[in-house]
Simulated scan of single mutants.
Amino acid sequence: MALVDQLALESDLSDSALCQLLDYLDHPDQDQDGRVRHHLIQKAHQKRMEIYGNRVFLRGLIEISNYCKRNCVYCGIRAGNPGAERYRLTLEQVLESCRIGYELGYRTFVMQGGEDHAHTDAFLTGLIHEIRTAYPDCAITLSLGERSRESYQALYNAGADRYLLRHETADDGFYAGFHPGMALSVRKACLEDLKAIGYQVGAGFMVGLPGQSNQHLVKDLRFLKTLDPHMIGIGPFIPHHETPLADQPSGSVEKTVVLLAILRLMIPKVLLPATTALGSLNPVGRELGIRAGANVVMPNLSPLEVREKYDLYDGKICTGDEAAECRQCIQKRIENAGFTVDMARGDHPDWRN
C-alpha cells in the first residue's frame, strides 16, 4: 500500500521500488485478497478522474496496408510470412473510411500500417492533404513505423497532428532479439525527431514477451517517464500462428492492467488506450483497462473486406463488424462500465496547435 500511495503522491518511484511493486503483485500468495492491486487501480482511476473526468475518447482506426519490410518475430504481417494476404487501401478507400467515420462522429482518424515501400512521402502527403481539406476539424494520427526526419517533417507540414511509434522494449539486447536488423537507438531517435518536429507523440510496449522480466518492464517505465510522450499504448503479447513465437503463451491481461494503472500514476496527463489486444484475450479486457486509468479506445473503420488481413496476432476481435456496429458496441460497453464516450479530437491537455 505504501508504495502505491507514494507513487500516487509523487508520480514516481525508484527503479528498485517499481520492481518491488511488480514482483509483489506477481504473487497472489502475497496479495491474497488483492488489496494492493485494488488500491493501485483505485488510485489510478482517481487520478484519471481528476484530469479527464469519466470521458473515454474514441479514435477511428484505418489499417491502410499490411505490407511491411520488417521481420519482427512476433508480428503476423512480418515480411517473412508467406501466408499473409497482402493489401493496400487506395486513396479513395481511405477517404471513404474517413467519410463513414465522420458521419459516425469521429474527429480523430488513425492511419496505421506496416512499413510499406509504396507509402512514399508523395502518396502520404497527398492523402493527408485530402483528409485535412475535407475534415479540417479532425485530428490526423499516423502509425507507419520508422521514417527519416525529413519524411516526418513533410507529413507534419501536410497536416498530420500525431504519430504513434511503440518502442516495444527499452532494453537494447531484448529489442534486437525480436527485431532482426533493427536497433533500439534508431527507434528512440525517431521518437525524439517526432517530438522535436511538434507532433503529439505516442510510444509504448508489449507485456508478456517471451523472456520478459520485471527488470525489462521497469526499463520501459523509466524510458517513458523520461520521454514524457502524449500517448502510451501497451497491450499483452498474443502469438500469431505463422511467426517464430507461435507456440509461446500470451501475455497477461491482469499484468497489463496493473501497468496501465502504474502509467496513469507516473505520467498523469497521458492519453492511454485500452487496446484491442486486451479485448481479444478477455471479453471485458478493455473495460478492465478503462477502470484502471485508460481513456482512449480505437474502433475499426477499415473496409470490412480487409479487416481479417491486418492480422497482427491470432484471435483479433471486431474483424467482422461494420463501422457503425463497432461504434455502437464500444459505446454501450463504455457506458455500461460507468464512463461516457467523448467523440472530440481529445488532444493532450498540454498540447497547443
Rank of each mutant, 00 (worst) to 15 (best):
E63M: 09
G315F: 14
L164G: 05
G80R: 04
E150L: 15
A134I: 13
L194N: 00
G60A: 05
G338V: 14
H117E: 14
L209G: 00
D5Y: 13
L7S: 01
V284P: 04
L312Q: 05
E322G: 15
P349V: 09
L9S: 14
G181D: 07
Y74Q: 06
L221Y: 05
Q93E: 15
D15M: 12
G159L: 07
I64G: 00
A344N: 14
V257S: 05
E150T: 14
A79Y: 07
H45V: 00
V110E: 08
L104N: 05
E242K: 12
L21W: 10
P239F: 04
R222W: 10
I267W: 01
C98L: 03
V253L: 06
A274T: 08
A324V: 15
P303K: 00
D228G: 00
M1H: 13
A323K: 02
L271D: 01
L191H: 01
L304A: 07
F174V: 11
G126P: 08
D5L: 11
A44R: 07
I317A: 04
R149F: 00
V306E: 05
D33W: 11
P268M: 03
V296P: 12
I62P: 02
L95F: 07
R147P: 15
L155R: 09
M111W: 00
V201Q: 02
H348M: 11
G101F: 03
L58S: 00
A203V: 15
N66L: 08
D116K: 05
E287L: 04
A277F: 10
R70F: 10
C68N: 01
Q112M: 11
C68R: 02
G235E: 08
G53N: 08
H240N: 13
L58K: 03
E192L: 13
E115Y: 06
G208H: 01
V218L: 09
G320R: 12
L259H: 05
M298S: 10
S14R: 14
F123K: 06
Q93W: 02
L144C: 03
L127P: 03
L104Q: 06
I238G: 04
S185Y: 00
A189S: 14
L263G: 07
H216N: 15
R149N: 00
L221P: 09
V4Q: 02
T90N: 00
R48P: 14
A154M: 09
F178L: 15
R37Q: 13
V253W: 02
R48L: 15
E150Y: 07
N282W: 13
Y67C: 12
T141R: 02
D121Y: 04
D121A: 14
N282T: 13
Q46D: 12
M298H: 01
G198R: 11
E150A: 10
S151H: 12
L144F: 08
L91N: 09
H117A: 14
S151L: 15
T276Y: 02
R86H: 11
E96H: 12
K47S: 13
Y135N: 01
D247I: 09
K316T: 03
Y87H: 07
N300W: 04
H45Y: 05
D220E: 06
H240D: 07
H45C: 07
F109A: 08
K316G: 02
V110I: 12
Q248Y: 10
Y313V: 14
R86A: 04
S302Q: 06
K69Q: 11
S213G: 10
L18W: 12
I131C: 08
D29K: 10
I232N: 03
Q93T: 02
Q200F: 08
A79T: 04
L91H: 08
A158S: 11
T120W: 13
E242P: 11
F123T: 09
